[in-house]
């Protein structure tokens, strides 16, 4: 896990074992190949951080929506049709001039799928899980996010089924932008809390 970099070169026996397992589960009627294909398609192509970006941009331009999001994030996010697995109980936490929020799952990989899709490798890696609860400022610095000393850092450890979504601060100089343009500024990491919005474009599939 510490490595988590070995994606290119898994042991050949790992690949074989996954194939054997799939064949066996299909033969026993426990899974169907078409369902596996549909699950992969869903999380590769349909559900990802662009969902969360839409939610955040709406909160930036619509004060009533922002209030609904902070009061009951599950319901507010469902207004966009984003619901379900690993996001059954959403809580939105807002970054301000005084508070910076960042999310982790120290025990494994809990992550708000309906708004962010599947987590990046670093989020599931030992270094992030181990360090961000103890030295969040140092970890954020490595992401290029420098917080002033008087900023309160809040780390949310997702130990239950509650899934946390960070509403990043709206970047300065964006007053004239509409919701759609603003959503382009909301990168995935800004909704985890490791970066600020506006620093990275929302790349395809990330």
């Amino acid at each position: 896990m510490a490595s988590n970099h070995k994606h290119g070169d898994p042991l050949p026996e790992t690949v074989l074992r996954v194939k054997s397992l799939e064949s066996l589960l299909i033969e026993k009627g426990l899974v169907e190949a078409e369902a596996l294909d549909a699950l992969i398609d869903r999380y590769e192509n349909k559900v990802g951080p662009k969902n969360g970006a839409k939610v955040v941009a709406r909160a930036w331009v619509d004060e009533e929506y922002r209030q609904r999001l902070l009061t009951d994030a599950t319901a507010a996010v469902a207004e966009f049709g984003f619901t379900g697995a690993q996001g059954e109980e959403l809580v939105a936490v807002e970054n301000t001039d005084k508070i910076h929020n960042v999310v982790v799952c120290t025990l494994c990989s809990c992550y708000p799928w309906p708004v962010l899709g599947l987590p990046p490798v670093w989020y599931k890696s030992a270094p992030y899980r181990a360090r961000v609860v103890r030295e969040p400022r140092k970890v954020l610095e490595e992401f290029g996010t420098l917080l002033p000393d008087d900023m309160e850092v809040r780390v949310w450890d997702s130990t239950a089924e509650t899934r946390y979504l960070v509403i990043p601060k709206r970047p300065k100089g964006t007053d004239g932008m509409d919701e759609e343009a603003l959503a382009q500024l909301v990168n995935r990491d800004s909704m985890i809390g490791t970066r600020e919005a506006g620093k990275l474009p929302v790349a395809e599939g990330t």
């Binding site: 994606h7 490798v121 890696s125 270094p127 992030y128 961000v132 490791t194 990330t206």
Partner: peptide, 15 residues
């Protein structure tokens, strides 16, 4: 555990 190493333009799956 060492440094956190984000991957640029990381795909959803690696294989």
């Amino acid at each position: 555990m060492g440094p956190v190493k984000p991957e640029e333009n990381e795909p959803v799956f690696h294989a």
